[in-house]
Amino acid sequence: MTLQTSDPAAEAVLLKAYARGDAKAAQALALRYTPLVYAHACRMLNDRAEAEDVAQDAMLRLWKQAPHWDADGGASVRTWLYRVTANLCIDRLRKGRPDGLSPDFDMADGAPTAEAHLQDQARQSALEEALMQLPDRQRQAVVLRHIDGLGNTEIAQIMDIGPRAVESLTARGKRALTDLLQGQRQTLGYTDDTVQTS
């Protein structure tokens, strides 16, 4: 898995340009970061509407922060955004626990639904349900590490913990997912990665 790396200096230049009134910088920032925060919120909340609200809120905080951003501080805009997004998601989760998978939510929306892809869709749905059953911090660590593709150092900064704590969270999260999916695989009738029909 290729880890995603950010360039704090380049990010700061773009944000500084926005703070000086550069509309093109605003567009570049929006195109670059909105998908990241939206995808992370989707995976944390499993609710598209909620994820859109969180993504808009996170980006709004970035716009407000832009004039005060310390371009020489070395901080990463991406790391900061992930942290804000995660905190917003956890706040929403604490206010009202979602009742499992939203019936209107389909993270594979837009993906092919031909019969040939039903198995993949079923596995993805099972994984989404299993993720929502993890404790919030474990889910956050697993999503950041194995889906968003961030390194342990950056995840540690986002979650405000040490790198070893990140490793522990991701390991526990993956073990929990494995156990949950093992049960789901039996329910779905998987053997040798095929769906049993009877």
Binding site: A23, A30, T34, A55, M59, A111, H146
Partner: peptide, 26 residues
């Protein structure tokens, strides 16, 4: 597979984000 198929951002969301960007721009 989940990583390779991120959920797409709707045009409505992107429009809202850009509107916020322009209104907050110094």
């Amino acid at each position: 597979a989940m990583r390779d198929a991120p959920p797409g951002v709707s045009e409505a969301l992107m429009a809202k984000v850009m509107a916020d960007a322009m209104s907050e721009m110094p």
